[in-house]
Nucleic acid binder design. Sequence first.
DNA 1: TAGATTGTTAATCGATTAACAATC
DNA 2: TAGATTGTTAATCGATTAACAATC
Lengths: 207, 207
Amino acid sequence: MADSQNNAAVLTRLPQYYRILRRFLQQGIYRCSSEEIAAQTDCSPTAVRSDLRRFSGCAKQGYGYHVKQLYTALGNYLGVLDEFRAVLVGDGAAAQVICQHPLIAVHGIRLCGVFSQTCPAPLPASQTVTGTLAELGAFCRENGVSLLLLTEPIPVHVLDEAIAGGVKGIWNLSEEKLEARDGVLIREVHPFDTLISLCCALKQGEA
Amino acid sequence: MADSQNNAAVLTRLPQYYRILRRFLQQGIYRCSSEEIAAQTDCSPTAVRSDLRRFSGCAKQGYGYHVKQLYTALGNYLGVLDEFRAVLVGDGAAAQVICQHPLIAVHGIRLCGVFSQTCPAPLPASQTVTGTLAELGAFCRENGVSLLLLTEPIPVHVLDEAIAGGVKGIWNLSEEKLEARDGVLIREVHPFDTLISLCCALKQGEA
DNA sequence: TAGATTGTTAATCGATTAACAATC
DNA sequence: TAGATTGTTAATCGATTAACAATC
């Protein structure tokens, strides 16, 4: 209701703001204006204000935004404070990289397990379980896992088991496209696409 | 000239098409329609046709697109066939993950070196040099490196040396924002933003 | 020729911004 | 009060789409 501004474009920017606010907090900045946020992004101050309108409880006219309040409100809105349980399908290197991210290392997502065709080596200093794909479905069910992070393709029947085990969202970093399924949200993620567009820009007149 | 359709939105889609066409080729599909491409993406067939208009040499009315030709033309346009030389700044795990991507493993980008505060372990079965950040600038100059892939923040003076050494584009996967510099293209990449938006969608009514 | 599918335009849709009133 | 900055609207801008002509 009245969430008319809940469009796709806004939803790509809210996580950016979240990141920027976290940096502000780390730097001891507790108050900021839409202009200061905009300077860290590609958007205009007007766009920032328009996006953050729904969090107007964290702002005062003439003063700006209360960073801590806004960070919390945003985190709450984005579901990041819910500590969703996740499982990674991928090899040890991918797991190590992903574990380092603040969203997992600090808070937001709780990475409960890492699974692969052959069981990955245990992660250093972590209580994350490792196992083979055959164990994935049961593990999801027993541990209330709702998120699946894919860095490599998995067989369809393994995916079916995970979904049967309660997985509701899939973050797919692999090259293989997943087909849509009822009741399951899928995000195909392709970071290398931006590297290609960088090459393109580099090739066309250097600037 | 007459490149009026060269807007940002199109440039985010061309790498997608490139990926999809590669998959088609792997599957032995040598001809496809705009509808078949669109089915693999979030866009409409009309959008695909409009985007690919500039490659009309690879299409025939009533027939569709010639996959091989279009793949090559796209790769050429995107600069991916130029085999830019790149250096990665990051630890061994990040390097291992990034090396596996077809853009680097197969063709497109030539990863010449991996550098970090402490020298990373050599990559398995690869001629990629490893070294410490102190060696980065000289290495870039001596090896014609034009791309810097960052998976962790680097000290400003190291970045300066790399740029002085000829780096023209930076693909920044780290959390630290880089400030703009003349003559250097920077892409800030945040794959985890999509994971956050997935959490958000998951939190709001499951669907 | 009939069928298929691109190329292209004009209309629609949605997102961004400029400007300023509201208010701290 | 004066200065700053949000909140909000109306205008602009740009991207998407529907529809169909062109043509293989």
